[in-house]
Write a protein that binds this DNA or RNA. Sequence first.
DNA 1: TTGAAAGCGGTACCAG
DNA 2: CTGGTACCGCTTTCAA
Lengths: 338, 338
Amino acid sequence: MDHPTRRARATILTLSRSAGVSPSTVSRALKGDPRISKSMRARIAELASDAGYMPNALARTLSSGRSGLLGLVLGPRSNPFYAMLLEEVVAQSAERGLRFLILHAGPGPIEDRTTEALLQYQMDGCLITSADMSSRAAEICAANGVPVVMINRVPRLHASAVSCDNAEGGARMAEHLLQGGHRRAAIIHTGGASSNGIDRERGFSEVFQAGGGAITSRFDGRSVYEGGHAAGRDIAAMAPEMRPDCVFAVSDIIAMGTMDALREAGLAVPRDISVSGFDSIPEAARAAYDITSFEQPLVAMVRRGLDLLAARILEPGLPDEAVTLRGHLIVRGSTRRG
Amino acid sequence: MDHPTRRARATILTLSRSAGVSPSTVSRALKGDPRISKSMRARIAELASDAGYMPNALARTLSSGRSGLLGLVLGPRSNPFYAMLLEEVVAQSAERGLRFLILHAGPGPIEDRTTEALLQYQMDGCLITSADMSSRAAEICAANGVPVVMINRVPRLHASAVSCDNAEGGARMAEHLLQGGHRRAAIIHTGGASSNGIDRERGFSEVFQAGGGAITSRFDGRSVYEGGHAAGRDIAAMAPEMRPDCVFAVSDIIAMGTMDALREAGLAVPRDISVSGFDSIPEAARAAYDITSFEQPLVAMVRRGLDLLAARILEPGLPDEAVTLRGHLIVRGSTRRG
DNA sequence: TTGAAAGCGGTACCAG
DNA sequence: CTGGTACCGCTTTCAA
């Protein structure tokens, strides 16, 4: 009961027959093994392309043990940062001949059921780009010898990680705001879950306070626009003398919401209050927002992340590693200057 | 040269040995074959879970011919609509036990090289959610008996498709604007490539003109915020008596750019000019934009898309099919009412 | 109700 | 430089 519409595909066996050589010779010729004569290689290459031969990656996996498949866990679309990460990851991994299987995309933690799918597909490794993912997935992977690398997240047990220097970023932002004459800051964080957010807040607070500033209020921005918006509304509702003179949101998407709420309440940014964010997503850079932010070195982060993963796939014993990359402050129009 | 860190995984063979039965019995027991006695099934199930047995999906594919893997082509992140689509697709396919391999994510067409990866991984089917993808990929898939379904794109050769009624959406928007007293419309389209955009524009133009309105200008919004922004700037620069009284952008992301540009130029929306979009992405629904839009029935579109794919995987001979779903107009604050 | 054995498409080791 | 062959993990007839 074959599929009549699906013409039988060429395999190494069929090629070997039409070439009159053995399957192993074909296999070697196809992957450029130097032991095969040039002429034979050329002949087989020609035959293969004529026959429209496509290697069966799955069969190769079965015998070689390596699938070339990586698992990807992506954070929620509500933060455009993850969409950027996705594009960059896909672009860079294509160059390396790696493919991604989507394990999870969206809010909430990855389910155990899903993690198991990973194992069924013999993935060589797993890339996690979500800040609030349960560490359970990493555990399951580790237990099965599948290396895990996290991007945009501080390292946890059973995983390597790449992140930008979040504390440093917070500190740079604090300096910038202090120089602009700000002394009363509101912080919009992400509520416990995100280690990134915590580091950014810590770096900010230390420097801001050391410089004579005060953190006058804190809000939970829940890593979403709406969370920032709600915080902005609360800030705008404060009595003018109680109001902070600047806001540090731990991510741009939050800062966008805050800024909109402040404006809707009739406050001018940065005249009445400065707003700053983190990540430097393109949306926050638009003229309509023009938010001062700390840029994460996205391309480099992805590159290092894939490097870490590739190294651990080649050499399973390698210890976990935490890489911190330097980002940089981008001053835009949403913060008052000195 | 084994990997010492990676404990050997349980396989059907190891299970069969510890159970003292044949591999085929284990295989059948595991998938609930009724021919295996209840007691044996229970015993093997227990053994399997004790051993932490995970089936090797790739090995299964090799012998069964079905991988459970689908290919995904995703449009550029610059339009949040694709990120929505991604989350919905992943959520719904997880329920069906289908996994997605990312073939492409981002701007530009999918490369042939990439399409070939598809074939190497024996994907059962392919889902394409990008408006401007080259039809070449669909062709390659078809040639190899891999069914292709396009979501948010009108059908082409060698593929089934699901889309919302784009022309109808344009028509509804035209009616709405006519009722609001608008008679001079600017259209911001996406420049040839997108069949969706063309249908939306056509539906709009026909009804708007039939109702006594005129299309006074057209701009290429290139499906990106910046394209809409540039068009908005051009519109704002027109002499007031030449200026359109409303704008129909063929997607929300374009409308957002246009709206920002109009406001930056000092025009009020909708007092001076109305702005309308298409898709109804959450970003455009925010209070800061509040854009009147035509909502695509995303959940249903994805459901039908996966249905089409699933049906064609089970029965390879099925003819291509085009499904059109009905969306609906969402009137918000960016368009002047009667 | 269960077992034996032949593949699925490649890889890689051992010969020659 | 090339051939023979066992095997990766699972499915699936065909027998018993």
